[in-house]
Design a protein around this nucleic acid. Structure first.
Lengths: 220, 220
DNA sequence: GTTGACAAACTAACCAGTTCGTACATTATG
DNA sequence: CATAATGTACGAACTGGTTAGTTTGTCAAC
């Protein structure tokens, strides 16, 4: 039940007493941080409101209820990250280099967007029921598979990748290696007494991930 | 709400009116399920108490407070899973087969212990602060690295594995592929519209995981 | 260009249900 | 009897959500 606002000519961030778009955005960003940090049940509406330039009443005015706010925060996280993925360009590169770039980029991208990773973890704890409720997110992700699929296809055509692999499974493998690196850093580091978050360690893990994927798809 | 109370005058000789160990265990198992399902903040003490054969009073009697109960549930999850890992025996096998077995076993073991995976996810959301507070868990895990380390060492000695790899990083890679498979099943399946939880799909993903690891460590 | 009516944006105080935790009494056990 | 184990009832604080009302913007009619 989103409120439809009259289109506003974009002006610089308004400091006018009433600023619907700004207020809405401010709430969404604050809520995103709080949900990523504490989860759906752990986050507190009062706390979100306090950190906002606005008030609790405005949260309910714009987002209906807590779950509505969470859903928008989830969509916001997916959208932000997917938009960032557009920065990856592998068009000129030969397949092997393109795939290497894609894995490196994915690794770094996940690394830089910990809040997104946390939102996905939280959503998985909830069995993905809010993601299912969103008609925004699914549209964002179908294209994510296209990139790796086209690289793989080129590689097979040029004879450097072996045929018969499923691009979705490739994407799964890349995701697993890059996601786990962020999602399980706390427990992994604490259990084995070695901080894997250092730049040195991260570079090694990234190189390993690239090598694993390349050796897996390689035709040789 | 009709309270169904256990019959006080039961003649079962096995069930003594007071059963400290049984009560404690019953509470712990119930709490483990609830925390794995709903997280620390999402779980409700009253709900846990209701599902118990005992009462809320007993929870506080034995576990102090909610966080204490959560910590014990976390330790319980780690202990249960680590004990199950003892079932893996690769002593007679040549290194390649041993490593294959280890990956397959880890994959299946994670698959079968979803509640453990969920507890680890939840604990990571909490930045591992409860795990850090536990002096039980760290002791359980150091040995987990030994198995893969010894297989790897044998492989290097026999010339079938390439030298220079870090067993902890190997363990990291195996964990990533096996953990992600369970932790992100909900969002992954829903986003790409394909249920990767089917036995058919799981077997493919498992085979891929094995192949990736083997190709990565192979000397060839 | 002032006015006034209406809608959008916003505020403060409050409410009702929930939730963790406890006080106190009672029963079993050794 | 002394102590451990357990049942009952309750309360203080928290928390999601609402009620009732105020301020600000828009725009047509003077």
């Amino acid at each position: 039940m989103s409120q439809v606002k009259p289109a506003r000519k974009d002006r610089e961030p308004s400091k006018r007493p009433q600023d619907p778009d700004g207020t809405r955005q401010d709430i969404l960003e604050t809520a995103s941080r709080e949900f990523a940090l504490n989860g759906l049940s752990g986050a507190r509406i009062d706390e979100i409101a306090a950190r906002t330039k606005s008030s609790k009443r405005m949260i309910y005015y714009y987002f209906g209820d807590k779950e509505g706010l969470y859903l928008r925060a989830l969509e916001n996280a997916y959208r932000t990250v997917r938009e960032g993925e557009d920065d990856l360009d592998t068009d000129g590169l030969p397949p092997v280099e393109a795939l290497r770039r894609l894995v490196e980029f994915t690794f770094d991208h996940h690394h830089e967007h910990e809040d997104f990773i946390r939102m996905v973890m939280i959503e998985n704890i909830h069995h993905g029921e809010y993601l299912e409720r969103s008609d925004v997110i699914s549209g964002l992700n179908v294209t994510a598979i296209d990139h790796i699929a086209s690289i793989y296809r080129r590689g097979v055509e040029e004879g450097v990748f072996r045929p018969g692999l499923d691009p979705l499974e490739l994407h799964w493998q890349v995701s697993a290696l890059c996601f786990f690196n962020v999602s399980n850093r706390a427990t992994f580091s604490k259990i084995f007494g070695r901080d894997i978050g250092t730049t040195d360690h991260q570079r090694r893990l990234r190189d390993n991930a690239v090598e694993m994927i390349l050796k897996f798809v390689s035709a040789g």
